[in-house]
Amino acid sequence: MGKLKPMGNLKPPSLPTVLEEAIMLSILERPRFGQNIVEVVSAASDGTCQISCGTLYPALRRLENRGFIRAERSEANLAVRRGHNRCYYAVTDQGREVLNNLEAMRHQIKKYDKAPEFLT
C-alpha cells in the first residue's frame, strides 16, 4: 500500500473541518466573496448544506489565519453594498496542498477498507 504524503507540520486540529473544506472547494477555481460562497455551497448541495453568516465569517477567518486561503478587498458593487467593500477569498498554494492530501487520504482509507482482513 502506498504511503500518504506527509501533511507538513499540520497537527490534526489544523486540518479543515467538513464545512471549511466545502468553503475551500467553493473558492478553489476562482475567488468568491462571502455571500457568493454561501450561494455556491447551497446550490452545489441542492440546498442541504446551508452556511449561515454566523458560521461563515469565523470559518473564513480561521482558514485565513492558518494560511489556507487569502483575502483581497475589492470595491465592487459599492452602490448596492452601501459603500462596503467586497472581500474576495482564494485558496493559497498551502490550501491546495491540504485539499489534495485530504483527497489522497480518503482514497487510501477506502482502499484500506477493501483490503483482505489478514492484512489489517
Partner: peptide, 28 residues
C-alpha cells in the same frame, strides 16, 4: 432601518469582519 443597522454594527459587530459582512448583508 439602514442607518439603524449600520449604527448597531459599529457597536455589535467585530471590526475585522464589519465591512465585508455588512456589504454582504446589503447585497442579500
Amino acid at each position: 432601518f439602514v442607518q439603524l443597522i449600520e449604527n448597531a454594527a459599529k457597536v455589535l459587530v467585530y471590526e475585522p469582519i464589519r465591512d465585508e459582512s455588512l456589504g454582504d448583508l446589503w447585497e442579500l
